[in-house]
Design a protein around this nucleic acid. Structure first.
Lengths: 337, 337
DNA sequence: TTTTGTTATTGGAACGATCCAATAACCTGC
DNA sequence: GCAGGTTATTGGATCGTTCCAATAACAAAA
């Protein structure tokens, strides 16, 4: 198997110097259009492919960005990753996507590998754990790094943070439940020591406070399996409960499955609201009311901010909060079933 | 911002030549262990990071593989992508993941970009469309390429293909429905002109034939939304239907949501079986019977085969079929509800 | 002492692009 | 026909590694 042709080979074939070929490659207006045509023809004939590694060595950007996600199997993050990747691809960047699987040690390895590959930037939704082992190397290497959806490193001046306005969303959802007549509203799912749980509970607590109601809490992971198992916990600990605001849609969907198994009519006997508005929420039965986060839009905005940072050097603001909005469906009794 | 230290800088600091540093980098037994220690200390102190681009230029592998998926938002493919990426990461490879979004033109661009980046290999679940625009460049560049889950290019000697034994799975599922008493079994979802639909229908048709039953068909896309809408089509076209075998779990879950909305008791009034056994199948209500594909295992095997190909040069067999197995749950009436 | 081996270390030429400074080619106008 | 200016083209150094061939250091054998 013979080696790939280089610009020197192309140059020989086209009867010009390699410098000219290089100029053609970057679309310089300096070369005569006729010459350029000849060169391009030679490239096509020889099946020339650009060697980015060589260019990188001379200082041009690799056109590669890293994306590290704490849990890529969660559809919320999947949607973010896919939309982000596509937005970057449209701008000519390839994306190395990695699942850190909530494992700080693995995450450290993944980021180190990305730095070796010379990625132009890193976007990370970090796993829980000591942030310095992953952020310090990025800072040393001078790689623009964005924290999204979860802030682990407090140095947001250095590593700008972007997420959704969870507190506003949970307040809106809780007010909606209260307005629909619910009085004993539980917050199900999420681990209390995590900041995202605190953010999502913040608005819930504030809205209850406003209405003079007291909170009910079932703490736990954020998975569908937990949601399903939480039904029993709810019945035991808070049998009087008439509405549930879930940490996320996965918990809500699991919970609904569990309630249905027990013959409880969701939307009538008990109202349920989720968070994230994943695609499935609108398609489940009953339709799941949920706080919608426009993840695809958020991902595009993130990609846009990152490209600005790379192209013009303008670092994004230290903190950005994307708005969210409640979508009322049958599970909260919002529609006539 | 000063530039990153190179092996020459490290060499100066450690008082050796850059060649020695290079040897240390690849763990050569030629360097005295004491010297190696000094060099490693210097690296640590200076925050040296390996520059893969430079090494690549000299011919070493990039340690980067490309993964192109026709529809990355589908949880089936997501699970494959995530498991594959993690298996490759464990072997020291980074993975560029791309969603072709069933767009052949986009796919062509993505693959071209991967070739430019010099990926060591490509794993692709191709979008529908002319395969040559994406496979020919890969062949020219001599990049080991694996087709998974969908065969678009017939040259499987060149681009080995791996998937699941769909025909066996659909036969098993259909026999199970017949054994449970179903007689009017519909096959819902999937577009007839696609080979994967033909494979998944093959076993269904064979099992019906065996039992002297005739097929019922509702053709369509493979999404949750279609599944939900298919309920009406089913009622109109095949009101006598007593069981449904769905193209995949998404269709099945959508269908179940639609049936529940209409007050039909799934598992009693009508039996439903899905395909893929995505995580949600076990957690939905009622639990969804499904033909289980061990995607994570399949992804690991694929990663293993690819690493063999890269490390030892042994090309995988032209076609590999991973076994599948039916998991019986409540939706097909398999459990006492 | 010289020879012969080992074992460690090193200079320097690649790899394939970029880009600066230098040169060539071609217009103008006088 | 030539100065001056513009437009096109080109040699060659450079980026940070790898790896070969050459050399150095030192011990054991002759």
């Amino acid at each position: 198997m013979k080696r790939r042709p280089t610009i020197t080979d192309v140059a020989a074939r086209a009867g010009v110097s390699k410098s000219t070929v290089s100029l053609v490659l970057q679309g310089s207006p300096l070369v005569r259009s006729e010459t350029a045509k000849t060169v391009r023809a030679a490239m096509r004939e020889m099946g020339y492919v650009y060697n980015r590694a060589a260019a990188t060595l001379r200082g041009s950007s690799v056109g590669l960005v890293g994306l590290v996600i704490n849990d890529l199997r969660n559809p919320f993050f999947t949607e973010f990753a896919v939309s982000f990747q596509m937005a970057m691809a449209a701008a000519g960047y390839a994306t190395v996507i990695s699942n850190a699987d909530e494992d700080a040690e693995l995450q450290e390895k993944l980021v180190a590998s990305m730095i070796e590959h010379g990625v132009d930037a890193v976007v990370i939704s970090p796993a829980y754990g000591d942030p310095s082992s992953v952020f310090d190397p990025l800072a040393r290497a001078g790689i623009p790094t964005l924290q999204v959806l979860r802030r682990m490193d407090p140095r947001t001046e250095l590593f700008p943070f972007a997420s959704f306005d969870y507190a506003a969303g949970s307040a809106e959802a809780t007010r909606h439940l209260i307005a629909s007549g619910a009085r004993r509203i539980a917050f199900v799912g999420g681990l209390d020591e995590r900041s995202i749980t605190r953010e999502r509970m913040e608005g819930y607590l504030a809205a209850l406070e406003e209405a003079g109601l007291s909170p009910l809490r079932v703490e736990g992971p954020t998975s569908r399996a937990f949601g399903r198992s939480a039904v029993a916990r709810l019945k035991d600990d808070h049998p009087e409960c008439d509405a549930v605001f879930c940490f996320n849609d996965l918990v809500a969907l699991g919970l609904i499955a569990g309630l249905q198994r027990d013959g409880v009519a969701v939307g009538r006997d008990i109202r349920v609201v989720g968070f994230d508005d994943i695609e499935e929420a609108a398609l489940a039965w009953p339709d799941l009311s949920s706080v919608a986060c426009d993840i695809a839009g958020f991902a595009r905005d993130t990609a846009g901010a990152l490209r600005d940072w790379l192209d013009t050097g303008t670092r994004p603001p230290a903190e950005r909060r994307a708005p969210v909005g409640l979508v009322v469906r049958a599970s909260s009794g919002g529609l006539g079933q």
